[in-house]
């Protein structure tokens, strides 16, 4: 564990609390993409099957359980109690293409041919693009509530710190994971536009609104 990874994981955790706070505080999931949230649930379930096969640390297991449980809970909140507030008409990104694309990549470039590694690779590829329905929705509506943009920023910052973690691990441990690196780089690049708008607008106390 290093400082980049620890802060990254904590930011990931924080992003989920921010999202739950937004839903609870505004009593609405307006502007939140259910497709992105459902994709994250699929990502966590397919990646963390090693909970049953390998023990790393209490920290590792607790975080995995939290990510699976919280993503399931968010999907439930949006699906059932907050359904009337869900902006379905702007959440129109074709998420099925992302799932099919990630599945094909997972089969073409798996970490190994073990079923767990194929699913792990699929989840890495899927996570890289899972934010797209959310970003697409924000582009379509042209703006987002400030707290929703904090959520996306925390997620993007978590990814950016993972890149620094990999550079650090490469030099200190010789650690290499090409699949995670390439997918992680793609994932971080997807946030580039968002970061720019967030830093120039939201940080100055304005809404996330497209120029």
């Amino acid at each position: 564990m290093n400082i980049f990874r620890l802060v990254a994981d904590l930011l990931h955790l924080a992003s989920i609390f921010i999202l739950l706070l937004k839903i609870q505080q505004t009593k609405s999931c307006a502007g939140v993409s259910l497709k992105t949230q459902a994709l994250y649930f699929v990502v966590f379930v397919t990646r963390y099957l090693d909970l049953f096969t390998h023990f790393y640390s209490v920290y590792n297991s607790l975080m995995k359980l939290f990510f699976i449980a919280s993503s399931a809970y968010i999907v439930y909140l949006m699906w059932k109690p907050y359904r009337p507030t869900y902006s379905a008409s702007t959440d129109t990104f074709r998420a099925e293409f992302l799932i099919v694309g990630a599945a094909l990549l997972g089969l073409a470039f798996p970490d190994s041919w073990h079923i767990l590694d194929i699913l792990w690779s699929f989840s890495i590829y899927l996570e890289a693009v899972a934010i797209l329905p959310q970003l697409f929705q924000m582009t379509r509506t042209g703006e987002a509530e400030t707290i929703t943009s904090h959520y996306v920023f925390a997620l993007g910052a978590y990814r950016a710190l993972y890149l620094m973690n990999w550079i650090y691990r490469y030099y200190t441990e010789g650690y290499m994971d090409v699949i995670a690196w390439v997918a992680g780089a793609v994932q971080t690049i997807l946030y580039a536009d968002f970061f720019y708008i967030y830093l120039t607008r939201v940080m100055r106390g304005r809404l996330f609104s497209l120029p």
């Binding site: 990646r47 090693d50 390998h54 590792n60 970490d111 190994s112 590694d117």
Partner: peptide
Amino acid sequence: EQRPHIHDEL
């Protein structure tokens, strides 16, 4: 028998 790789990151 083949074992899955170890992935220590979240």
